[in-house]
Design a protein around this nucleic acid. Sequence first.
DNA 1: GAATATAGGACTGGAGAGGTCGCATATGCT
DNA 2: AGCATATGCGACCTCTCCAGTCCTATATTC
Lengths: 141, 141
Amino acid sequence: MLKLSKKADYGLLAVNHLTLYRSQGSVSARDIGKTYRIPVGLLAKVLQRLVQKGLLKSEHGANGGYRLAKPAEFISALDVISAIDGPVVITSCKTERGECVQTPACTVKEPLRRVNDRIVEALSSLSFAHINNPTFRLAAN
Amino acid sequence: MLKLSKKADYGLLAVNHLTLYRSQGSVSARDIGKTYRIPVGLLAKVLQRLVQKGLLKSEHGANGGYRLAKPAEFISALDVISAIDGPVVITSCKTERGECVQTPACTVKEPLRRVNDRIVEALSSLSFAHINNPTFRLAAN
DNA sequence: GAATATAGGACTGGAGAGGTCGCATATGCT
DNA sequence: AGCATATGCGACCTCTCCAGTCCTATATTC
Ligand code: SF4
Ligand code: SF4
């Protein structure tokens, strides 16, 4: 249905929160969850995934939490989304269960691939430094 | 998961088929289904939806089938996708069951809306006349 | 009237999204 | 030491929605 998963959405929200409050050190999943009314357990797993992918760093124990692993300019919406949902591909040409049976005769695969490229480009050109700039514009727009 | 539904995919394939063979009059769902190995019953309903939305015209009875309702230049990928899957919106800010509880505090809604705009633009600039031109390029690229 | 087509609704199975829980582990505070 | 608070991680559950089937009604051709 061409919709972002809620987990990816939560991820974007969380990373943006960490960007906004990066001067205050680590923030716990609990705090972020309360701020945006995100189920804490679920958010925790999203954040853990982002740590695995190297976008965030975590600190255990009391006063622990998460913080950005690198400057906000170098973290894009695409990074977050693909870390959580996997690679951004709008078609189902090939899945883990083999490739789509229409593939051999398919006439729209290439055009859709190009659309996909544009989406990827739009998402990767959107960094979190960018998002919080009130006058931001997407690249090539 | 930011993926096109299979129905929309089938719709694109079918409309493109009708574009390629538009000189030969109507084509039945059965024929299209066999060409691309699409379940005929499902394809039929997809095509019916496209008729309802005014993208195709249908003819009942033997030798009947579907044909484009207008020139291929005036039918875009967005037309087909939104006819089948509904409006293209990558977020779940508002659904039929009210609006997302994060909305009041959400800091990524606007940026995502802009990404959405770019996707819509890419899809609407992709007409079927365009798709079948071997040297096509997406607009603003 | 037989064959072939669309129109459209009801229904089903299964995958996956969204969310919960419990337990292990690490850290800070008193 | 002991407790509270964190993350890390896997198992599990529920519910929605996609994909696909089926059946019936209607329209058209031959
Ligand atoms: S139909 Fe064509 S585009 Fe759609 S998934 Fe199969 S191959 Fe990819
Ligand atoms: S979280 Fe923000 S962006 Fe995501 S759906 Fe709710 S409002 Fe829209």
